[in-house]
Design a protein around this nucleic acid. Structure first.
Length: 482
RNA sequence: GGCCCCAUCGUCUAAGGGCUAGGACGCCACUCUUUCAAGGUGGAAGUGGGGGUUCGAGUCCCCCUGGGGCCGCCA
């Protein structure tokens, strides 16, 4: 059976790179009818914060990813790592190291000054049994190092990159597997857990390629069969550097706040480095599960294109049923409100926003931003639009008259509204567009937006009439400015 | 610096030795139209360079160049 896992460390927000790694692990396990597990790699007590754990789990759930067993927390498995580390010491594959961080720092500097690649001096490798005993008795803190063979080729077959070969001399020397605080290091814990969790496919970022030979050595020392490895290319920023915070939004949370739909993000991320074939862009999760294979994942890194993600998001918004969109907008707004960033809007306006803006937004946020004049009576006027559309001779008189005619309408429907407006323009002998544009700016403050007659219908008669009557007063200041 | 990875339009990608190098985002033009989107039509835009192998190379091999990653008691 195929068993994959995602193993984030709670030292920050869930990053899109991590999210994509997770998506591929998830898709692959589902595609093969296997299992997908989640493991929290919380062995860095310096940077650990519980809120990151919560954030990661919530983020994954939001993305629509589910795991098949309860999460595994490495911090709860310390005895396990200890047991195996001691086993390695006994078998001669590892040894205790009493060097202090300061000593090691010095070593490192020395190597730097003679421009040699750093490798641990192995100062502690040949400590006699008595010396070790003495140090232990004195309570001297120690770490445990894995002993790397001097000169040996390690090759492994990467499912994405093919054969990769390393020589043990280039591995940087004996590396630490247990820190002096009793926590395992990444390279050690990952091996123990992947084996114990019976992971068959390790799908992770490219940046772990150099760690793989070290891990293989541990598998070997323990007499275990390594899983298959697939190293995903990185996601880069527009400057082709590894994507990071300075490139703007990169965490799931930020995208969520921006108003990106989870399945749109899922779709976009999945297609960043993998192609479903057939010149398709919009692919449902079910469809992906049907056709996903690691073999089809690209080896070259890809640049995250925010614009294309927005496009995809707008496609998903348009595909949504109105009712679903309304629910999602409510959820979205309450999510924002929890952070004190929500919009003050009455329930009744949600369907209006959806009907009016569904076809012209890129994000959920856009609904609230574009639609401010819908749910608020105080809305800003775009001065350029005001000058362009409300400078026509006697326009405010026309608008007041139009307001009167609207007021006497019994049926407030777009085609009725249209009939009245066009009729009045004909009476005046002016182009329909003059009135149309003037009315739009008056009721919405902007020169762009949804089809005017639908807009007026949705706004409601009273509000429209009131706005047409008040507009002159409101824009007076703008028109007086040069 | 050492080791490793990567290389098709600006970006994401398709093309498992044989096509005019295809699609998508973005961009431009036209169209539709009361504006903006959306839609429709069209367009500009790519195999980093040099050597091989082959009747034939984006595709296979080598070198160069360029980019990226890792070299922690971080993961």
């Amino acid at each position: 059976m195929v068993i994959t896992r995602f193993a984030p460390s709670p030292t920050g927000f869930l990053h899109v790179g991590g999210a994509r790694t997770c998506i591929y692990n998830y898709l692959y396990s589902r595609a093969k009818g296997g299992k997908f597990l989640l493991r929290i790699e919380d062995t860095d007590r310096e940077r650990y914060r519980e809120e990151w754990v919560v954030g990661i789990i919530e983020g994954l759930k939001w993305l629509g990813i589910e795991w098949d067993e309860p999460e595994v927390y490495q911090s709860q498995r310390l005895e396990i790592y200890k047991k195996y580390a001691e086993m390695l010491i006994e078998k001669g594959y590892a040894y205790r190291c009493f060097c202090t961080p300061e000593e090691l720092e010095e070593e490192r500097k020395r190597y730097e000054s003679i421009k040699r690649p750093y490798r641990y001096s192995r100062k502690c490798l040949n400590l006699s049994e008595r010396e070790v005993e003495e140090n232990l008795k004195k309570g001297k803190p120690f770490s445990i190092r894995f002993k790397i063979p001097d000169y040996e080729d390690i090759t492994f077959n990467d499912l994405i990159h093919g054969e990769i070969k390393y020589n043990t001399k280039d591995l940087g020397g004996d590396f630490i597997i247990m820190k002096s605080d009793g926590f395992p290091t990444y390279n050690f814990a990952v091996v123990i857990d992947d084996h114990l969790m019976e992971i068959t496919y390790v799908i992770r970022g490219d940046d772990h390629i150099a760690n793989t030979p070290k891990q293989i050595l541990i598998y070997r020392a323990l007499g275990w069969e390594p899983p298959k490895f697939a190293h995903l290319p990185m996601i880069l920023g527009p400057d082709r550097q590894k994507l990071s915070k300075r490139h703007g939004a990169t965490s799931l949370e930020e995208f969520r706040n921006e108003g990106i739909l989870p399945d749109a993000l899922f779709n976009y991320l999945a297609l960043l480095g993998w192609s479903p074939g057939g010149n398709r862009e919009i692919v449902s999760k079910d469809e992906m599960i049907r056709i996903f294979d690691i073999k089809d994942v690209n080896k070259s890194p890809s640049v995250f294109d925010h614009q294309k993600m927005l496009w995809m998001n707008s496609e998903y918004i348009r595909m949504r049923k109105d009712e679903e969109l309304i629910m999602e907008l409510k959820d979205y707004n309450s999510h924002l409100k929890k952070q004190g960033m929500g919009y003050d809007i009455d329930e009744e306006f949600y369907p209006v926003l959806v009907r009016l803006f569904k076809e012209r937004v890129k994000t959920l946020k856009d609904f609230f931003e574009y639609g401010k004049f819908v749910y608020k009576d105080e809305y800003p006027f775009d001065s350029e639009a005001v000058k362009k559309r409300l400078s026509y001779e006697n326009i405010f008189g026309y608008l007041r008259e139009l307001a009167d005619r609207f007021e006497s309408l019994n049926i407030w429907k777009s085609d009725e509204i249209e009939r009245v407006l066009r009729g009045y323009a004909d009476e005046l002998g002016i182009k329909h567009a003059i009135l149309i544009h003037a009315v739009r700016v008056s009721v919405s403050g902007t020169g762009v937006g949804p089809s005017l007659f639908h807009l007026l219908e949705e706004l409601g008669k009273d509000r429209v009439v009131m706005r047409l009557r008040n507009v002159e007063e409101k824009v007076k200041g703008i028109l007086q400015r040069p």
